[in-house]
Design a binder for these strands. Sequence first.
DNA 1: TTGAAAGCGCTACCAT
DNA 2: ATGGTAGCGCTTTCAA
Lengths: 325, 325
Amino acid sequence: MVTIKDVAREAGVSVATVSRVLNDTGYVGADTRKKVMDAIAELNYSPNEVARSLYKRESRLIGLLLPDITNPFFPQLARGVEDELSRSGFRLLLGNSDENVQKELDYIQTFVQNNVVGIISATNHLDYQIYNEMKLPLVLLDRTSEDYPAVYADGREGGRLAAKTLIDKGAKRITLVKGPAHIKPAQDRYKGAIEELSQADVDFSVLSTTSYSFEEAQGWAEELFGNFPDTDGVIASNDIVGIAIIHEALKLGKRIPEDLQIIGYDDIPQSKLSYPTLSTIRQPAYEMGREAARLLINIIKKEKGIDQTIEMPVELIERNTTRKE
Amino acid sequence: MVTIKDVAREAGVSVATVSRVLNDTGYVGADTRKKVMDAIAELNYSPNEVARSLYKRESRLIGLLLPDITNPFFPQLARGVEDELSRSGFRLLLGNSDENVQKELDYIQTFVQNNVVGIISATNHLDYQIYNEMKLPLVLLDRTSEDYPAVYADGREGGRLAAKTLIDKGAKRITLVKGPAHIKPAQDRYKGAIEELSQADVDFSVLSTTSYSFEEAQGWAEELFGNFPDTDGVIASNDIVGIAIIHEALKLGKRIPEDLQIIGYDDIPQSKLSYPTLSTIRQPAYEMGREAARLLINIIKKEKGIDQTIEMPVELIERNTTRKE
DNA sequence: TTGAAAGCGCTACCAT
DNA sequence: ATGGTAGCGCTTTCAA
């Protein structure tokens, strides 16, 4: 390992001087600078971030806490975060919490132990207690909050939009799939949809579910048609569930969208590869990730916009599981 | 920030003693140990990993380099890696390379600068030069290699299996979708399929593609039926492309699997949510991730099995895009 | 404009 | 069994 000492020796100067050119701080003579630069190039030196971090008590690392990267909504978020962050030279320490408080705490501890300079969390379970105690900048992602800066999509509006779309397109017996109770954004959508549904001249029922997972999605779909066989419009809790419902409906011989309309939520990439392609409410996941990263960087740099809360717009994507009318 | 000094003071002992109980090294009297433990609990102390890392010249961090987490095959790998790694107390520094050499180099530099104790790379572009120069333990994932320990699925066999399946089930005019040239595992599959195809009594054509992405998958599908409208069996380069092909085929009014059989590759979670559900060759992505992590940990601990190369089995998953017969 | 040296929090060696 | 302390690689005073 080549250290700052080696560079200093090679350049014939002190380590202090090398540090100065490295960080572009304080006075350094032009020729001295050149000697140092040459030595750095010669030795192919790059500074040890750990030593830096120890002295400055902050690293160039940012902690990202996700429920589960295996759920296709989150890679998009993560990618947005990473792309934006790396523009400012930050890197990502990643953790999946599985909505498990202990795992979440473990990761937060790791983050703190490694001097991360900020945290982005898309987690749903934890109460703020722990976040309050640590003094690190925190941005919540895919999550609203009174207490912390947050980036999220307008779930209430999304729910309304989903319901309104189905109503406008003539669905009369709508089934609303209610997402997991502990996931806040899922409840927002639900509420939005209920608002719209209860004011309209339609029948509607609710199917409560407890997960978004691939494994269970098919089960929800079966349950749905078991309980509400004559439904002609489904508001799915997300695209995965929506796609599972398409699948089940086709198996039962229903015509989509003639007999049954379906609208999803999220607009994950594969929703345009379903057959028929899934109409859905789009959350701009990648952009949400970027915004969260941007916000966190601002906070770190103590620039304007701190404590901001950014609500991203939601958008109807009309594909082929809703009628053209 | 509470440091080892604070604990020492609180417990009325020296920092050396605290360090000993922390690391369970050397002699510590039972009562002293208790005092220290109490002080740690009292102060809610947890050691600064950065300081540790600086002294020991190694952290508890491992670098994971992926082409693109947004491609649904990789989250599975990543999750397997993370789950296994965290059992041994390691954490993940994540980077997406986009198969871009510069990004890859940047991440490797970050890894080194942060004293990671090992690297797992699922990248395709880089020549080994850079990996050779750094002395860190490296495990290649989803990638074969003469020079490094690697975990991969048997692509050759997978390709053969895919081809054999279609042949056995009576496809006569098969189109083989060849994956991106720079992706080694894609070429292995291709070769395996060619082997089988060229020995069988079937017509076959090849469609060359340059990406696996969602965005372009539909384009490949259109091109496929444009060039080979009467094909009755498609070996897709992966599941995403396979699903796009289902989609396009249905649009063209083809019956699946009566007129057209399709077989995918990977068995990503959403392949069982397509309609019809996609028959495919399964790569055990999650397990591959775990194996890679396990292997790396062994190497780090200098245990047996170093330099191992682990070939994971591939498996035919029969769903509804192939005939039952 | 430059260098010497203290110190970031920790581990491990050498004493006792 | 315990404590003192050097040193990991770096940054930042303070002096010169």
